[in-house]
Structure formats: C-alpha cells, structure tokens
Amino acid sequence: MKNRWRVLENKIFVRWLSIVSIITMILLLVFFLTLLISSWPAIKANGFGFLWGKTWDPVANHFGMLPFLVGTLITSFLSLLISAPFSIAAALFLGEYYPKGLVPNIFRNVIELLAAIPSVVYGFWGLYTVAPLVSKIEMKLHMPAPGVGIFTASIVLSIMLIPYSVSLIRQVISMTPTSLKEAAYALGSTRAEVITKVIIPTNISGISAGFLLSLGRALGETMAVTILIGNSPEIPHNIFSPSYTMASVIANEFTEAVGNIYLSTLIEVGLLLFVVTTIINIIGRMIIKKVSY
C-alpha cells in the first residue's frame, strides 16, 4: 500500500517536471498567439501602411508607426555605439588582462552593480544629471534645449547596457584557447597585437552575438527611455530631437487608449517588439552556444 503510494507520487513528480518544462517552452508561442489575436483588429484596420505611416493621431484613428520605429532604432544603435568601446575595454580588462585575482573580482562586482539599479531609477537620475548637461550643449549649439531627447536617452541607455555586454563578451574572450595566444606571442607579437589580431578576430562571432543580445535589450528597454526621450511622436530631425520608442509609446498610452483599434494598435506595436527581440535572442543565443563548445 505504502509502496504503491510512493510509486504514484514518483510518477506524478516526473510527469509534473515534464509538463511545466514543456509549458515553459511553449510560453513564447502562447505569447505570440496572444499578441497576434489581440492585435488582429488593428492589423486588419491599419494594413501594411502602418509600418511606414508617418502620422500618429489616435484621435483621428490614424496610426502610423514610422516615428516610433525610427526613434527606437536610432536610440538603440546610438546607445550600443556609445557603450561598445567601454564594454570591449572592460571585457578585455576582466577577461584577458586580469582574469583572476581579488581586485579584478571587485571590479567585476562593481560593474555588475550597474545591473542592480532599476530602469526607472536610471531614468530619474538621467533627468536630474544627464538632461541638464545635454541641455547646455543644445544651448551652445543654438537649438531648442529641452534636455530630453534621443541623445540623453541613448547615453543613459548605454550605461545600462554595459554590465550586460561586458559579462557576455568577457565570457567569450576568456574562452580563447591559450595555445592560440601563446602561438601569437611566440611570433613576437605585442599584447595589443594579440588582442586585435588574434583574440578579437577568433571571437568575432561571439562578440557580435554579445552586441546583438545587448541590442535586443536596448530595443525593449522601457522605463528609463520613457522618462528621457521626450515623448514626441514625430520623425526626429537630429540626434537631439525629442522622439518616442515603441516600448515607451506602449508604456505611456496603453492605459489611456480609448477604443478597440487604438488599444489593439498598441498591442500590434508590442507584437512587433516581441517578434524582433525573439528573433534577435534566438540568433544571439545560438551563436553563443555554438562558440562555447
């Protein structure tokens, strides 16, 4: 009797493990279907023109996503560009120059602290510190000087990306076979040459994957950007212009969206964000997995 219960309990446990695991796997598919179904009215009403429509006028039920698309892409790529040298340098410092020891370990933990600060606090901090600085630059350039805009958002976003890209790239770099490095040193190369001609080229796919995953993160980053981008649904003129991103338009307008099509359109924006970040993450993860074996 007791034994039978133990057998049953064991069977239930094994079944539970596979069921929750499979549910976790199909969660992404369920997300996709949820978003697709909920945005279907908007997809039908807005058509393909939605993607390159320049006007966002919910009152007139006129929805064009181009301003958000442009805003998102410029902000993300700019932040990636700003953070790249810092990320690579810190990854080299921790993965190649000083991979072990107390001080590098402290450094790594300090950089990881950047990931401990919530997005909304970054936004708030940026509003008090980065925005006034940018505003001064704008005044010098004789431009309207609101302080907030693409540039401000990108700077803060680039700081937020650093811990993420550093840890990904450091892992890739530290996996470089020692024999390869030694071969290059044995030929008389300097350390800079070993790094630029051996370490970086051999790991280029892993490093790119690290940046790709960071880009995925930048595309979906919401709160800090929402606070700092200026929330203007127009195509930006330059990198100082106030703009809007896909994530922040959802954050700002979702609860105020009156009318089915309006809400559905915002979900459509979410669907696009989901699809793009999913693809980026699948590609990035597959590359990382390939290079780690």
Partner: peptide, 11 residues
C-alpha cells in the same frame, strides 16, 4: 528559457 529572458518586460 534564454529567449524568454530577452523578451521586453513591457510585452
């Protein structure tokens, strides 16, 4: 699971 980690929280 890896991809889930990269999905924007707003989604």
């Amino acid at each position: 699971v890896d991809v889930l980690q990269g999905i924007p929280s707003i989604v």
